[in-house]
Simulated assay, not measured.
Amino acid sequence: MAFPDTRLRRLRYNKIVRHMVTETHLRVEDLVYPLFVCPGTGVKNPISSMPGNYQMSVDVLVEECKIAVSKGVKSVLLFGIPEHKDEHGHVACQSDGIVQKAIRAIKAEINDILIIADVCNCEYTTHGHCGTIIDNDVDNDSTLKTLADQSVSLAEAGADVIAPSDMMDGRVLRIREALDLAGYEKIPIMSYAAKYASGFYGPFREAAESAPQFGDRSTYQMNPANSDEAMREIAADIEEGADIVMVKPALSYLDIIYRTKHEFEMPTAAYNVSGEFSMVKAAGEKDWIDEKRVMMEVLLSIKRAGADIIITYHALDAADILNGQK
């Protein structure tokens, strides 16, 4: 039937009816809060390009996690800024590494929290690339051992989920084999399955001190123009044992999130990355947009596209709104 018999606005006039027919629901439980941990005590260094975010020492990080849990955000994603770096990222594999220390400290004080540990080498290498450099390029296969060792070390420290973000071929398989051999067969892998070589990562590189010292990451991260290739990447990670697949970034890749969810019917995560966050914050600070409204619209669009899990620096502000506090 067509107008005037069909009037779609009938379901919009009444607020209660609007809520009744809402198709997509964003929940606090959908959110993951990314955090940056650094050496020291009492450290809370502001990240200039990411207002409201900080590099935090372990003690401060634990208190931030308590705040998150009190708001219902019970999942965090940890990134480490080590005191020292090396050529291969071996420092990330040590039992007393900065993230390993943070995991143990959080677990000692907070019971009801899920710790997702990012697995990559860029924060831990002197050159800032995501793996071992041979002949001025990241060598895929030699990097896999470091990633597997790092994953086992993080699981031993108490990580609940291992999240490889490096985009090396075969890393999910190698990590799964290493975790199982070490007795961590129950630990799931959240794979950064379709991670694009994006300009939206700029603020993160300040936060994690992980900018590459030469070249770029286009030989291992994906071409932003490609969609079918993303499906092949995701299919490969699922075959290798990924339990959750992730698309990164989110906003410019909503079509990839949609395809991922509908083609694979797998638990799907999306990373609302630093540049996406900072754009909203900057425009909000200049009163060019209603920051909170746009923030919620952004997160809702990611959920509507098909994401079950949203990793976002907006997590605490969004939780306040979802909890009816703002």
Rank of each mutant, 00 (worst) to 15 (best):
R293S: 15
E239N: 12
K248E: 09
D237K: 05
K71Y: 15
V91P: 05
A319G: 08
C120M: 08
F36S: 02
N111L: 13
A163K: 01
S70W: 07
A307T: 09
L31H: 00
L144Y: 08
F204I: 12
A318V: 08
D141R: 12
F264L: 09
E63F: 11
N14S: 13
P164Q: 04
A155E: 00
V91G: 04
V294I: 14
K326Q: 08
D317Y: 04
I289N: 15
C120G: 15
Y184C: 06
N14C: 14
K85D: 10
D169E: 14
G131P: 15
E123W: 08
N45C: 05
D320L: 11
N111A: 15
G89N: 03
M168W: 04
V247N: 06
L299I: 03
S301T: 07
R304L: 04
N136L: 09
D166I: 00
F36T: 02
I106G: 01
D243V: 14
S198P: 12
D287W: 13
N140Y: 02
A208E: 06
A163F: 01
P4N: 01
A269E: 13
R304N: 03
A193E: 08
P82Q: 12
V294Q: 00
M56G: 07
V298K: 05
H84M: 11
G183M: 00
A235E: 11
E123D: 12
S165K: 05
S191H: 03
I257P: 02
R259Q: 11
H129I: 12
I238L: 14
R12M: 13
E64T: 08
N53D: 05
L11V: 12
L181E: 13
I311T: 10
R7F: 09
S252L: 13
R9T: 14
I238H: 00
V247W: 02
T268L: 12
D137L: 06
V298S: 12
Y258H: 15
I113L: 15
A211D: 07
S210H: 09
C65S: 07
I257G: 00
K85F: 10
G42H: 00
R174M: 13
L61Y: 04
S142K: 14
N14I: 09
E185V: 03
M56D: 08
E87T: 14
D141I: 05
E87V: 14
A148K: 09
I134N: 14
G183W: 06
G52L: 14
D166V: 02
G72I: 02
Y220P: 11
D160I: 00
E206S: 13
M168A: 13
H84Y: 14
G89V: 01
V152E: 07
P82K: 10
